[in-house]
Nucleic acid binder design. Structure first.
Length: 363
RNA sequence: CUCCCUGUAGCUCAGUGGUAGAGCAGUCGGCUGUAACCCGAUGUGUCCCAGUUCGAUUCUGGGUGGGGAGACCA
């Protein structure tokens, strides 16, 4: 691996982080450690879409290229707490294995990624609970409840006490995983901030928080009036509960093009344009040059070497939304080909996929 | 453990002793070289069981799920 300067490393982290809290600490971290630890956690649940698959891999690889080692927290117990897969731990574990296979297949830098299962880790580290209790003593019920959005729950009848446990446990994760950096999505920032606030009281080092962008869903972003920018992003993010506005890692080519065909894509507009967004965050991250195929009737083929050029051409009306859609679908599909192949050829992976497909999706 | 309230379409809710509606969402079609907007179409749902009744979603009882309060400590 070629040596990067601290500035170059920080620049890469900035590419991943839509928000970085503690940038000065990040500089010191890179100056003092060759291999800082970053963590991300995920609840295994049902299908895995490209924001969790492709985008996650892109971000992880950027960070590991700076020397960062990633710890992936396979949050099986959290999934249980959040009633994923009907609260069936056995199913949750199978889905967790399935997710890992997807990342293997889509090019994640597995040499610098370690997967740690919550249920196993906690069993081996009972001191984890002491941290949970101490955290609970240093914050308020209101503050913990305000972290509720990290559980991604929409409406719910009743307020399970798990809503208290979950954020406290997640904060404890950061410490016990030895994470210097909490590298989760913007939807997880509230717990990370909670951890930054409380950790000093317990004598722990507060994490640097690098929050990545939440890829929006393919539908028209609605119902977003009156929300602040973070809440809005969470509201319009890609969600497996709206299957036609999310591209899944194991979707067929036909699924991909059908979904893009239905996608919201206002001509010449950059804001709230999911297709353009996927071009930026995924396609141009993985391809040096992108070709838009058009018949002579519409002006012939176009080629772009970077996202900015494509964006300005689109804004000027030089690219029709339908051509952009077809192009984006084509390139995303190219990225899914190896995933499909893996799940076709690898027996273990194939078995996992079939089991996951057999599970009724709870939420 | 006791009492009160409550359970109707994916969501928010109407409604009637004679086999159920609205808004939003969704799906489909039309319009545009995409989608959206707009227009049109589209709802195999009354928590479960028993009873009363010619007939219950509507009444009664039990069960179960949800919410609230009380009781023990005083």
């Amino acid at each position: 691996m070629k040596k990067l300067s601290v500035d170059a490393k920080i620049a890469l982290v900035r590419e991943v982080g839509e928000e970085i809290v503690g940038e000065e600490e990040l500089r010191k971290l890179f100056e003092s450690k060759a291999h800082p630890i970053a963590y991300d956690g995920f609840e295994p649940s049902g299908n895995i879409h490209i924001a969790q698959g492709l985008l996650r891999a892109i971000n992880v690889n950027k960070l590991t290229s700076t020397g960062i080692k990633f710890r992936f927290w396979v949050a099986d117990w959290f999934g249980l707490l959040n009633n994923k897969m009907g609260g069936d731990l056995a199913k949750i574990r199978i889905v967790g294995e399935y997710f890992i296979e997807v990342w293997k297949a889509c090019g994640m830098d597995m040499d610098n990624v370690e997967f740690i299962w919550t249920s196993e880790f906690v069993r081996e580290h009972p001191e984890y609970w002491e941290t949970v209790l101490k955290l609970s003593m240093n914050t308020t019920v209101n503050r913990v409840l305000r972290c509720g959005q990290i559980m991604g729950r929409e409406e719910s009848t009743g307020n399970p006490a798990s809503q208290i446990m979950y954020p406290l446990m997640q904060a404890a994760d950061i410490h016990h995983l030895g994470a210097d950096i909490a590298q989760l999505g913007m939807d997880q920032r509230k717990v990370n901030m909670l951890a930054r606030d409380i950790f000093p009281k317990l004598g722990f080092v507060p994490p640097i928080v690098v929050s990545h962008h939440m890829l929006m869903g393919l539908g028209e972003p609605k119902a977003a009036e009156g929300l602040n920018s973070v809440d809005r992003k969470i509201e319009i993010k890609m969600s497996k509960s709206k299957p036609d506005t999310a591209i899944f890692m194991t979707d067929s080519k036909e699924d991909v093009s059908r979904k893009f065909k239905k996608a919201f894509c206002p001509a010449g507009k950059v804001e709230d344009n999911p297709v353009l967004e996927y071009m930026k965050y995924i396609v141009f991250e993985r391809f040096d040059s992108v070709k838009i195929l058009r018949s002579e009737k519409f002006g012939g083929d176009l080629e772009f070497g970077c996202y900015k050029d494509l964006e300005s051409a689109f804004v000027k009306g030089k690219i029709h939304p339908l051509d952009l859609k077809d192009c984006c679908a084509e390139y995303i599909d190219k990225l899914l080909v190896p995933v499909r192949e893996h799940f076709e050829k690898d027996k273990k992976a194939k078995g996992l996929m079939e089991q996951v497909r057999g599970f009724a999706v709870t939420r």
